[in-house]
Computed example of a mutant assay.
Amino acid sequence: MASEISPPAPGRAGRTARGIARVLAAAGLAVDAYVHAHLADRYDAIVQAVSQGTLFRVEAGLAALAALLVLAWRRPVADAFAWLVAAGGLALLLVYRYVDVGELGPVPNMYEPVWSTDKKITAVAQVVTLVAASFLLLTRRHRPGRHRR
Protein backbone atom coordinates (compact mmCIF):
# COMPACT_ATOMS: atom_id res chain seq x y z
CA MET A 1 0.00 0.00 0.00
CA ALA A 2 1.59 3.23 -1.14
CA SER A 3 1.23 6.18 1.12
CA GLU A 4 0.02 9.40 -0.36
CA ILE A 5 2.18 12.45 0.13
CA SER A 6 0.34 15.71 0.25
CA PRO A 7 2.07 19.02 -0.38
CA PRO A 8 2.98 20.98 2.71
CA ALA A 9 0.38 23.40 3.94
CA PRO A 10 1.10 26.83 2.54
CA GLY A 11 2.47 29.33 4.97
CA ARG A 12 1.56 32.94 5.24
CA ALA A 13 3.08 33.72 1.80
CA GLY A 14 0.99 31.00 0.16
CA ARG A 15 -2.20 32.23 1.80
CA THR A 16 -1.38 35.80 0.80
CA ALA A 17 -0.71 34.79 -2.82
CA ARG A 18 -4.00 32.87 -2.98
CA GLY A 19 -5.83 35.82 -1.41
CA ILE A 20 -4.37 38.18 -4.01
CA ALA A 21 -5.33 35.72 -6.76
CA ARG A 22 -8.92 35.63 -5.45
CA VAL A 23 -9.13 39.42 -5.45
CA LEU A 24 -7.66 39.62 -8.97
CA ALA A 25 -10.05 36.96 -10.28
CA ALA A 26 -13.03 38.70 -8.68
CA ALA A 27 -11.91 42.10 -9.97
CA GLY A 28 -11.53 40.77 -13.51
CA LEU A 29 -14.97 39.21 -13.34
CA ALA A 30 -16.46 42.40 -11.90
CA VAL A 31 -15.05 44.41 -14.81
CA ASP A 32 -16.42 41.81 -17.24
CA ALA A 33 -19.84 42.00 -15.56
CA TYR A 34 -19.88 45.79 -15.55
CA VAL A 35 -18.90 46.20 -19.20
CA HIS A 36 -21.43 43.63 -20.41
CA ALA A 37 -24.24 45.09 -18.27
CA HIS A 38 -23.33 48.62 -19.39
CA LEU A 39 -23.36 47.70 -23.09
CA ALA A 40 -26.37 45.37 -23.10
CA ASP A 41 -29.00 47.96 -24.05
CA ARG A 42 -26.93 49.00 -27.08
CA TYR A 43 -27.26 45.49 -28.48
CA ASP A 44 -30.96 44.86 -27.83
CA ALA A 45 -31.80 45.58 -31.48
CA ILE A 46 -29.59 42.72 -32.72
CA VAL A 47 -32.08 39.87 -32.49
CA GLN A 48 -32.57 36.38 -33.85
CA ALA A 49 -34.68 34.45 -31.30
CA VAL A 50 -32.69 36.08 -28.50
CA SER A 51 -31.09 39.52 -28.57
CA GLN A 52 -27.39 40.14 -28.24
CA GLY A 53 -28.31 42.47 -25.37
CA THR A 54 -29.89 39.54 -23.53
CA LEU A 55 -26.75 37.48 -24.09
CA PHE A 56 -24.69 40.37 -22.70
CA ARG A 57 -26.92 40.42 -19.60
CA VAL A 58 -26.46 36.67 -19.15
CA GLU A 59 -22.67 37.12 -19.37
CA ALA A 60 -22.87 39.97 -16.86
CA GLY A 61 -24.90 37.83 -14.45
CA LEU A 62 -22.59 34.83 -14.75
CA ALA A 63 -19.50 37.00 -14.25
CA ALA A 64 -21.04 38.71 -11.20
CA LEU A 65 -21.99 35.34 -9.68
CA ALA A 66 -18.52 33.94 -10.36
CA ALA A 67 -16.92 37.01 -8.72
CA LEU A 68 -18.99 36.51 -5.58
CA LEU A 69 -18.32 32.78 -5.45
CA VAL A 70 -14.57 33.07 -5.91
CA LEU A 71 -14.44 35.53 -3.00
CA ALA A 72 -16.99 34.03 -0.64
CA TRP A 73 -17.08 30.28 -1.25
CA ARG A 74 -13.36 29.53 -1.66
CA ARG A 75 -13.81 26.06 -3.09
CA PRO A 76 -12.26 24.54 -6.22
CA VAL A 77 -15.68 24.39 -7.87
CA ALA A 78 -16.03 28.19 -7.47
CA ASP A 79 -12.54 28.70 -8.88
CA ALA A 80 -13.35 26.42 -11.80
CA PHE A 81 -16.62 28.28 -12.43
CA ALA A 82 -14.72 31.59 -12.48
CA TRP A 83 -12.20 30.09 -14.92
CA LEU A 84 -14.96 28.77 -17.20
CA VAL A 85 -16.86 32.07 -17.25
CA ALA A 86 -13.70 33.99 -18.15
CA ALA A 87 -12.52 31.43 -20.70
CA GLY A 88 -15.93 31.20 -22.35
CA GLY A 89 -16.32 34.96 -22.49
CA LEU A 90 -12.83 35.46 -23.93
CA ALA A 91 -13.30 32.68 -26.49
CA LEU A 92 -16.56 34.21 -27.71
CA LEU A 93 -15.08 37.70 -27.77
CA LEU A 94 -12.20 36.49 -29.96
CA VAL A 95 -14.35 34.35 -32.24
CA TYR A 96 -16.85 37.13 -32.88
CA ARG A 97 -14.00 39.61 -33.36
CA TYR A 98 -12.18 37.56 -36.01
CA VAL A 99 -14.79 35.22 -37.54
CA ASP A 100 -18.10 36.12 -39.18
CA VAL A 101 -19.96 33.10 -37.83
CA GLY A 102 -23.39 34.37 -38.89
CA GLU A 103 -26.56 33.42 -37.09
CA LEU A 104 -26.42 30.20 -35.08
CA GLY A 105 -29.90 28.96 -34.28
CA PRO A 106 -31.39 31.43 -31.80
CA VAL A 107 -28.12 33.39 -31.50
CA PRO A 108 -27.84 36.49 -33.68
CA ASN A 109 -24.82 37.32 -35.81
CA MET A 110 -22.53 39.06 -33.32
CA TYR A 111 -19.55 39.61 -35.64
CA GLU A 112 -17.87 42.91 -34.83
CA PRO A 113 -14.43 43.19 -36.48
CA VAL A 114 -13.08 46.07 -34.40
CA TRP A 115 -11.21 46.42 -31.12
CA SER A 116 -13.25 48.96 -29.18
CA THR A 117 -11.98 50.23 -25.84
CA ASP A 118 -14.68 48.23 -24.03
CA LYS A 119 -13.67 45.07 -25.88
CA LYS A 120 -10.00 45.58 -24.99
CA ILE A 121 -10.83 46.21 -21.34
CA THR A 122 -13.01 43.10 -21.21
CA ALA A 123 -10.35 40.94 -22.88
CA VAL A 124 -7.69 42.08 -20.39
CA ALA A 125 -10.06 41.50 -17.46
CA GLN A 126 -10.85 37.99 -18.70
CA VAL A 127 -7.15 37.15 -19.17
CA VAL A 128 -6.40 38.41 -15.62
CA THR A 129 -9.22 36.22 -14.33
CA LEU A 130 -7.94 33.20 -16.26
CA VAL A 131 -4.43 33.58 -14.86
CA ALA A 132 -5.66 34.13 -11.29
CA ALA A 133 -8.20 31.29 -11.39
CA SER A 134 -5.61 28.96 -12.95
CA PHE A 135 -3.26 29.78 -10.07
CA LEU A 136 -6.02 29.02 -7.57
CA LEU A 137 -6.83 25.71 -9.23
CA LEU A 138 -3.19 24.64 -9.53
CA THR A 139 -2.19 25.57 -5.97
CA ARG A 140 -5.18 24.34 -4.04
CA ARG A 141 -4.48 22.59 -0.77
CA HIS A 142 -5.56 19.06 -0.05
CA ARG A 143 -7.20 18.81 3.34
CA PRO A 144 -5.75 16.29 5.76
CA GLY A 145 -7.87 13.21 6.24
CA ARG A 146 -9.38 13.36 2.77
CA HIS A 147 -7.51 10.69 0.87
CA ARG A 148 -8.53 9.18 -2.43
CA ARG A 149 -8.83 5.43 -2.51
Rank of each mutant, 00 (worst) to 15 (best):
A2L: 13
I5R: 14
P8R: 11
A9C: 00
P10W: 10
G11K: 06
G14D: 07
T16F: 14
G19L: 10
G19N: 13
R22D: 04
A27D: 00
A30P: 00
A30I: 10
Y34H: 12
L39D: 14
D41W: 09
D41G: 05
Y43Q: 09
Y43D: 08
A45L: 07
V47K: 13
Q48I: 02
V50H: 01
S51E: 04
Q52W: 15
G53M: 08
L55W: 09
L55I: 15
F56K: 03
F56G: 02
F56N: 04
R57M: 07
R57T: 02
A60T: 07
G61M: 00
A64P: 05
A66M: 06
L69I: 03
A72S: 13
W73E: 12
R75D: 10
R75T: 15
R75Y: 00
R75K: 14
W83I: 02
W83L: 15
L84G: 08
V85A: 10
G88D: 09
V95R: 00
V95E: 02
V99T: 09
V99D: 09
G102F: 09
G105C: 05
V107R: 05
N109T: 03
M110L: 09
E112I: 00
T117V: 14
D118N: 13
K120S: 14
A123Y: 07
A123N: 10
V124W: 06
A125S: 12
Q126H: 06
V127Y: 01
V128H: 04
L130P: 01
L130Q: 02
V131E: 03
A132Y: 08
A133D: 03
A133L: 05
F135W: 15
F135Y: 15
F135R: 01
L137R: 03
L137E: 07
L138H: 04
T139P: 02
T139G: 06
R140Q: 14
R140W: 09
R141C: 03
H142P: 03
R143M: 12
G145V: 11
G145C: 10
R146M: 10
R146T: 13
H147E: 15
